[in-house]
Amino acid sequence: METLYARLKEPFGLTDWVLQKPDLCFVTVAREQLRPLLLHLRDLEGFTHLVLLTAVDWIEEDRFQLTYLLHDRAKARDIGVRLMLPREDASMDSIHELWPTAATYQRELREMFGIDFPGSPRVNEDFILEGWADLPPYRRDFDTLQYAHEAYAERAGRETRDPARHMKEQLYPDGGQDD
């Protein structure tokens, strides 16, 4: 994996390399280098299997992280390619021509995170949430608890406990030390 990174670092401007375990590493790439990098990995390095494509919302840093995880079966190794996008009007180039299955991932990201992939097949069709008009729900600023309070009636007699405080009361009825 180290030699792979050493070879690709300069041509594709890779940064933030992390060797998570001997057969899995993560790198960050700039937007304009993503497609050449994925093509290179797929066609020349043996990473032919797109394992997953997903997003992480780093709301404090005002950006989304897209993760393209690729697998090389012959050498039994994986590479996670990270790409950072600004959260505002997030939009990314589609890769459905490289892997047809990417269209499904992109359709889900469009619905759940609001990240657009212009040109991706059926990207604007409802995927899981039919008729959803609220904020894309997998964004960190979508509050599931508030949504549940507003959308559903509370069952009478239901009690909600903070697990840490509840366990402390069970284990130390006389008080005990603070956290």
Binding site: K21, L52, L69
Partner: peptide
């Protein structure tokens, strides 16, 4: 109840009856 895990990311996979689960 107070378990914090340092910043990081990983992928773990296994072979389930239908294929790769991760």
């Amino acid at each position: 109840l107070h378990w914090k895990i340092p910043r990081g990311e990983t992928y773990v996979r296994g072979e389930c009856s239908r294929g790769e689960y991760g």
